[in-house]
Design a protein around this nucleic acid. Structure first.
Lengths: 195, 195
DNA sequence: CTCGCTGGAGACAGTCACTTTCTCAACCGG
DNA sequence: CCGGTTGAGAAAGTGACTGTCTCCAGCGAG
């Protein structure tokens, strides 16, 4: 387990992301080329594409996409998906460096700025959320309480509702916890399960 | 009003879309270049970009994006957004050629296939829905009944909920009306306003 | 420990979406 | 009829992404 190959990959991943964000912060997303990022991270451009697929992928780099179906299923309670989302957000938020705004620090929130400031990155985030919706929708439908169509609708409402809350958090400057925004923003959706 | 310039633009728009879809159907989205489309539509590649912005834009070509804020406001009832959406869907659906599946015909549904079959087009559609959400969210918040965050969440739930219903319609083969899927899929969301 | 071997990193050329800039024709208001 | 502006076409450039090839090093078998 965890051979040298995987080590190298993980190290390269972090190096690319860090150096890329340094360059983006310095000169702007559009003004930095993949070649420059690769050079700064001391890897080949091929590796950047092999690891992240696209330039936007460097910023988005979703761990949710690579989550196993089992892990996902264990995290999501179909009877209370909003609550599950809240738990996940709180867990993720408290782990690294709490209290950091989106503009500052080197935590996982540094990249969030580009979610909303760079149109192409925003688009990539939307694509990721769309994929997330596709993954959780069958889990919601599995209960049999709702139809497949309703499961799809609700799955998207959850994924993009989270995105909406995140944007509100970002626009406010990122002082209060994200979970607060998620909880408040998604409160109306909870009426769905209160019957 | 409606000078020759605008005429030309509209004519070119339709020509580009039609010829592009012909080529896409024939050889696949990825295998057709902008140059070929421009040649087939007898315009310059520059014009394609001036009119549609991107290759995906040829397929997505959203009239919603170009809708004036006034028109939008007149269409959306903040007290019953799901009902407003349903009315809009039904109106749009009944106008051109009803009863056409997504795979057939030359109506506005021909392009929908690419929304779900071509990843990059799907991404562009998501971006459009995201913009739609941003446009309707202030209208929902204007009532004062809900917070800004909740307005954003609900706006996204509407936009991407519609998308979910549309996908379900597409996957089913497009026989029943889209409005049926929207109505059924979004029924849970209506509990929000039933208090 | 050693030896094949295979998977992955690097190098490289090619494609094409998209941008920028320039020129020029022809529509529009006077 | 006539300047002025608007917008279409032409053309070169940029850079993201792809496919292919080579080669080395990590990993497993013996």
């Amino acid at each position: 387990m965890s051979g040298l190959r995987e080590r190298w990959r993980l190290k390269a991943m972090r190096a690319i992301q860090e150096r890329a964000l340094d360059l983006f912060d310095e000169r702007g997303f559009g003004a930095v080329t993949i070649e420059e990022i690769a050079a700064a991270a001391e890897v080949s451009p091929s590796s950047v594409y092999r690891i992240f697929g696209t330039k936007e992928g460097i910023v988005v780099a979703d761990e949710f996409d690579h989550m196993s179906p089992e892990t996902l299923e264990s995290l999501l309670d179909p009877a209370d998906p909003v609550g599950s989302l809240l738990r996940a957000v709180r867990a993720y938020e408290s782990s690294p460096g709490p209290g950091e705004g989106p503009q500052t620090g080197r935590g996982p929130w540094r990249r969030v700025r580009y979610f909303f400031a760079e149109p192409s990155v925003r688009m990539a985030v939307c694509a990721t959320l769309d994929r997330a919706g596709q993954r959780i929708s069958p889990l919601l439908a599995a209960t049999g309480k709702i139809s497949e169509t309703q499961a799809r609708v609700i799955a998207n409402a959850l994924a993009f509702g989270y995105f909406a809350a995140l944007e509100q958090w970002y626009l406010a400057g990122g002082d209060r916890p994200i979970a607060d925004y998620v909880e408040e923003g998604m409160r109306p959706l909870r009426t769905i399960w209160s019957t």
